[in-house]
Nucleic acid binder design. Structure first.
Lengths: 212, 212
DNA sequence: CCTTCTATGTGCAAAAATTCACAATAGCTG
DNA sequence: CAGCTATTGTGAATTTTTGCACATAGAAGG
């Protein structure tokens, strides 16, 4: 058994959510069992990779049969912490921010926004879904512990992002999802995940230019 | 010289945009020259990595001095194809779609939306910036060649994404930026880049759960 | 023009990740 | 219950990526 001997590689963690998407589909379609081969094809990866990734966490499969869809999905969710609810706050209620706030994928997966901050006076005081009121970012310090906010989502202009991140960290938030196209400096104890569309576009452009 | 002997690793390509962000800052701040060490620190990577990545494409630095900011940035842009203009179309004009459409980072980097598609009758016909009119996706086939669309951006609900991707490919689009949380099947000759926020969130949740 | 200083470019070793390939084993069949 | 089939779990081989460490070369100063 691998699971207790080695530490888990980062790429493995990044693939788990990838596996869970088709599994949800299969569950919905009432397919009871899936093989590493099928799942691999659905995700566009190598079957051995699927098996090895899963084996880090336990023996979820049955030899000669495959993986039971429902229980595998449950296991993956447990590993990723997706079986819990997570409380988020949003900083920056512009176009992107409000799209994120209204995004149903988030809530469906257990991520709920419980506070929204923006420094624009025209937005402060606006009442959103679930009775959430847009507040000035200076309220972060006080709101984080009170509302048990665990994850901060930054959707501000780039030049404000570092400052906002520091406010979040010092208020006790230890995980940040950053949509601003800058590199956030963070304390050792915290995690930052960056989403930068333009990086993806630049990748595309590079490969496209190569194609002919 | 490495450049003509070996093929370029994917991670290298993915880091180039990362380097370009701080370089833009440095250029704005009129810093003339930067060392691999400084640039590495700004990007949170290893200095040798910066040098090696850049060396794949040429000898851009001066020994004992460093890299000239302006010319390095220009080189990176040339490599990534960011020195050109790219013409995009957007499919799916919901919350996320409209946030993307209005996102200034895109235009600033040379990515311009020249068409928008959505199947919602309430949205079709709506006139947006630059005189772009929201059209039904069945117009994709005709619009792609006419408007010289090079990249398609998918911001539809997941269950429509595959169908839309196929329409784009068959219309001649060879690069797709996909925001729907599904794995797009694609022809050999095409490139797909996925942006899935919930994957990033699940990563965060995993690491957060690990922290204590 | 020679010496010193500094930071690049890169060969090489180490580490990490992927993939192969097969032994182990569960279920099925007769 | 023995033999067959299918598919897992995993050791070993392979490939890829990273990082060290240093020779190399440009610049500056005497």
């Amino acid at each position: 058994m691998l699971r207790n001997h080695k530490k888990i590689p980062e790429p493995t963690i990044e693939r788990l959510p990838l596996y869970s998407r088709p599994l949800e589909e299969l569950l919905k379609a009432e397919v009871p069992v899936v093989s590493s081969d099928t799942l691999a094809k659905l995700c566009g990866v190598n079957p051995a990779q699927v098996r090895k990734d899963l084996a880090y966490f336990g023996e979820f499969g049955v030899r000669g049969v495959g993986y039971e869809v429902a229980s595998l999905l449950k296991e993956i969710k447990k590993i990723l912490g997706t079986d819990r609810k997570w409380r988020l706050c949003l900083v920056g209620f512009g176009n992107l921010g409000s799209a994120l706030f209204e995004n149903h994928n988030f809530r469906r997966r257990g991520y709920t926004f419980v506070a929204v901050f923006d420094s624009d006076p025209a937005k402060i005081g606006r009442i959103l879904e679930n009775g959430i009121v847009v507040e000035h970012p200076k309220k972060i310090k006080e709101a984080v512990p009170r509302l048990h906010i665990q994850i901060g989502v930054i959707a501000t202009p780039p030049f404000k992002a570092q400052r906002v991140a520091e406010m979040l960290f010092s208020a006790g938030v230890r995980a940040v999802l950053n949509f601003a196209p800058i590199q956030i400096r963070k304390p050792e104890c915290c995690v930052v995940e960056n989403v930068d569309f333009t990086i993806s576009l630049e990748n595309l452009a590079y490969h496209l230019a190569k194609l002919h």
